[in-house]
Design a protein around this nucleic acid. Structure first.
Lengths: 211, 211
DNA sequence: ACATGTTTCGAACGTGCATTAGATTTACGA
DNA sequence: TCGTAAATCTAATGCACGTTCGAAACATGT
């Protein structure tokens, strides 16, 4: 073997990449093994040397996708100085989640996009993993609130849902080359922390200059 | 004919309901006409008396779904007194969108969930409709900002994406019987307008009753 | 009761797909 | 160079699904 990678490992990786990409685009059921194989440079039958079934391939894609965001966010927290503000902790978590999602990671975006439409049996195998990721966020937000960085009159569960929704939805509209990911993350955090409203309640009467 | 509804209309409606429900749950490709037919109380072949093809059925479900949110949000604006605050205008729009999505409307949630994974040709037929809905929100937000109800240093496009993400994601986690829709809408607007951060950098120490 | 149009059935057809298994090629150590 | 294991190919199998179509069942006006 030339390097650390056997030929099998390389093919395996190519197949997984192709699968993640196609699953993400078309969904699970609409994706054929023929497509995946072609994108990986081989015949459909050859896939079975590396994976036992289409489902098995799917499960590995889902697993990798979730593991990547989880690790990215976890790392973002560890990398931070211990005396960082809780706003910063949340900010880097948001950045990590977004960056993983949008920067070429078909695995994570495939997971997010198709999870709800995958065979029930497959879903069950991954619920634990999803819960673990949710728990990570729960802790980040909870610590922030306890330390007084977040208002105490808000439902953290709802905050988490709102935040995940806003972040995950980006896979539906983000286009590489437009607004940089860093900017998106910053703006989102700004809105999240400060809101989009103007503080002083309406007073002036110079209404309506609208289109 | 007994009432305004011919038998054909009734069957048609049953089929559409069944289709919307199943598409929403399993996605387009994974849904079989046999399933839809059974849920509608007939045989698969009988569907073709009402619809020309599976795609045609899909298109009608998508169309109805998008029309329903659009009309709901539009109505919410018309129903409002002309002198209502822009915060209220946004609030009722959020309520309308959420209520449509979560209150038994398989059509709208099907549209949101599966649109990205539908045959490209079908997507093209519905882009105009989607744009129209986006435009409705664009105007609501733009009017609010121009009138001074929203900060002027934020990117409205991003606000819209964030908001749509937060709202649409609710189909992934909402469970009937838990938090009422009205409460979710209120809380979301609260966060949206005021943010979740504490204004004055940490000062008091009297909070702490968190889980 | 009959006739005519409407709606559903039921069986069949063709296709595309996941999967299998044996043959074939490729890589590599001895 | 040879032999063996790894990796891929190729063709075949079987099944599930979308779709078609003539027959049956149903409804309705006369």
């Amino acid at each position: 073997m030339t390097s650390e990678q056997s030929k099998s490992d390389i093919s395996r990786a190519r197949i997984l990449d192709a699968a993640a990409k196609t699953f993400r685009q078309k969904g699970y059921a609409a994706t054929t093994l023929i497509e995946i194989a072609r994108a990986a440079g081989m015949q459909a039958g050859s896939l079975y040397y590396h994976f036992g079934s289409k489902d098995e391939l799917l499960e590995e894609v889902l697993d990798i996708g979730m593991r990547r965001v989880h690790e990215a966010v976890e790392e973002s927290q560890k990398r931070l100085p211990t005396d960082s503000s809780h706003r910063d902790r949340i900010r880097v978590a948001v950045e990590a989640h977004l960056a993983t999602l949008l920067k070429h990671d078909d695995y994570t975006s495939a997971n997010i996009r198709i999870f709800g439409q995958v065979p029930e049996e497959v879903q069950l195998h991954h619920i634990r993993q999803r819960d673990a990721y949710a728990e990570l966020w729960r802790q980040i937000l909870s610590k922030a609130q306890k330390s007084g960085a977040l208002r105490s009159d808000i439902d953290l569960g709802l905050v988490r849902m709102l935040l995940m929704g806003a972040l995950n939805w980006s896979v539906e509209w983000y286009q590489p080359g437009r607004t940089p990911i860093q900017t998106i993350a910053d703006q989102m955090c700004l809105m999240l922390f400060n809101g989009i409203g103007i503080e002083e309640p309406a007073r002036s009467r110079e209404n309506e200059t609208v289109t």
